[in-house]
Nucleic acid binder design. Structure first.
Length: 282
DNA sequence: TTACTCCTGGCC
DNA sequence: GGCCAGGAGTAA
């Protein structure tokens, strides 16, 4: 389940292989993952291929969970991996299975395969601007953006009685966290996931921001978390699964106190936390 | 704020 | 055979 560390790992793998390369041919093998301008009509894949082929990739960026492929001619793609997507660099003429929905054939023979078995991923076209312009209304400041300070973090997420976990996962407020790392961050900060966001005090906001970033950096250092399908740009699994401290550890001992990890539902998502050392809402 | 939808592989 | 996982959009 690609969240920020996984998407950033993919980006770091793709960038050196793709930046400055011309896309000789772009193969869009199915249209239903594409979000393109209305004038594309009912055959988005047919619109997307010439829009992409022949252009040069000038930057591979990321904001939150979106990969941003900027191309020359002021155009781009914001690519979301959904929960099972991968972007893998292959040699020329590598066979693709039925889950491979996009193949970019680069001018040096490299192929970039976008695979998304569960098809939750999307390619969102930016027809006349950088890739980010296609998604800027749905993705807020990246949680690792150094210009995001504690005050702004608290301003964005606080001011609502909604649970802190649902606020942390709202990509429009702060982008990058999904279900796994929201649980990990809240555990690290010893904040209960059901705590109303507006109840956090100044110290807790500071701790939460610091812990969230530490959790993400640690996961990045391990190449992300793989449970089943996630792969980096070289097709490798992530190594962080064994380092998770609370996610997926239902009824096991808490790693910080004498309590145990329980699994509850918060905002409709399965949530792992320690009811003993993560301060529960009053 | 909650519930449903999309989709498929993996598991019981 | 059915349920679960989950990001994000939408509907109730």
């Amino acid at each position: 389940m690609p969240e920020l560390p996984e998407v950033e790992t993919v980006r770091r793998g793709l960038a050196p292989r793709c930046t400055g390369r011309r896309i000789g041919r772009a193969e869009f093998r199915r249209g239903d993952i594409l979000i393109v301008p209305e004038e594309a009509g009912d055959d988005p894949a047919r619109w997307a291929a010439p829009f992409t082929g022949g252009r040069t990739i000038i930057r591979v960026g990321r904001q939150g969970k979106y990969l941003l492929l900027d191309m020359d001619g002021d155009a781009g793609w914001a690519v979301h991996l959904g929960m099972s997507g991968s972007m893998v660099v292959h040699a020329e003429d590598t066979p693709a299975d039925q889950h491979t929905h996009v193949i970019l054939h680069l001018d040096d023979g490299v192929e970039v395969h976008y695979r998304a078995p569960r098809r939750f991923g999307r390619w969102i076209a930016a027809p006349c601007g950088p890739a980010l312009s296609a998604v800027q209304d749905r993705v807020g400041i990246d949680i690792l953006d150094p210009t995001l300070d504690v005050d702004e973090f608290a301003n964005r997420l606080g001011g609502s009685r909604a649970t802190i976990k649902s606020r942390l996962m709202d990509q429009r407020l702060v982008a990058g966290l999904g279900n796994i790392y929201a649980d990990e961050a809240l555990f690290a900060a010893a904040v209960h996931p059901m705590c109303p966001a507006s109840d956090l005090d100044v110290g807790q906001w500071a701790t939460l921001l610091r812990c969230t970033r530490a959790v993400l950096h640690r996961a990045l250092g391990n190449g992300g978390t793989t449970f089943s399908s996630y792969r980096d740009a070289a097709g490798r699994r992530g190594g962080h699964s064994d380092h998770l401290r609370v996610y997926g550890r239902e009824s096991e001992d808490c790693l910080r106190c004498s309590g145990y990890v329980e699994r509850i539902k918060v905002a409709g998502r399965s949530t792992h936390c320690c009811a003993t050392c993560q301060r529960a809402p009053v």
